[in-house]
């Protein structure tokens, strides 16, 4: 899936003053591309990622998914887009604590009542992420790295066209970070999944097809 961002501006009101966090971002992400977003803390990386991924709306400007504006869709279609075309991984591997690893992975298909058909697929996915024997464990009995891989499996279970990740390795030690990074690369290579990843780690960033540098709410044009 191809994503185009056109002149994205995002301002936040804080008290009486307004802060412009994104100051007119234009970026095009090709289908199948693996792109990383880097920049200092507070430069607006997360804000941009949320806008690109439909979780947040820009103050002005437009995001187009293969030419359509997700916010022009009706509610149901927007939720379906999130459910089927988009995967998310956050820095804090968000799993539902009362569900097992497998059940967490099956959350997106459950919305469509497809969790039974997807069960084998989910187990395979977990196995390929090194979690074969941990599928029936609750998140609190998994390590941080295992939880993050489980969250990645959940993001991928619907075979999304695009995967958004906000510092997916931020909370992991280097070995676990490396594991997750390798999975990202594999998914990108084998499934042709478009990946947009925010990261602080310069080594991981360099392994993407393209690095986008954000400086105080504008793209460093030298990076494009």
């Amino acid at each position: 899936m191809k994503i185009e961002a056109r002149n994205i501006i995002k301002t936040f009101k804080s008290g009486l003053s307004e802060v412009q966090v994104l100051k007119g971002i234009d970026v095009t992400i090709q289908s199948g591309e693996f792109i990383s977003i880097v920049g200092k803390s507070g430069s607006g990386k997360s804000t941009l990622l949320y806008i690109l991924s439909t979780l947040d709306q820009p103050t002005s400007g437009q995001v187009l998914f293969d030419g359509t504006d997700p916010f022009a869709l009706n509610e149901d279609d927007l939720h379906m887009l999130r459910n089927q075309k988009i995967g998310f991984v956050f820095q804090f591997h968000h799993l539902l604590p009362e569900l097992t690893a497998l059940e967490n992975v099956l959350l997106p298909p459950r919305k469509l009542n497809q969790h039974l058909q997807k069960q084998d697929e989910a187990l395979e996915l977990l196995a390929s992420f090194g979690l074969a024997d941990k599928a029936h464990r609750l998140p609190r009995h998994l390590s941080g790295g295992e939880q993050q891989r489980c969250a990645l499996a959940r993001a991928l279970i619907m075979k999304p066209a695009i995967l958004f990740a906000d510092e997916p390795t931020g909370n992991l030690d280097s070995a676990n970070g490396e594991l997750v990074m390798e999975l990202f690369e594999k998914v990108n290579r084998e499934q042709k999944t478009t990946i947009v990843m925010v990261t602080h780690d310069p080594d991981f960033s360099k392994r993407a097809d393209r690095e986008v540098v954000l400086v105080d709410g504008v793209l460093d044009t030298s990076s494009l």
Partner: peptide, 16 residues
Amino acid sequence: RKEIAILRSVGYNSHE
């Protein structure tokens, strides 16, 4: 709240 955010981000709507 966190879990609500996860559910919403994987496509569950507010009715759900």
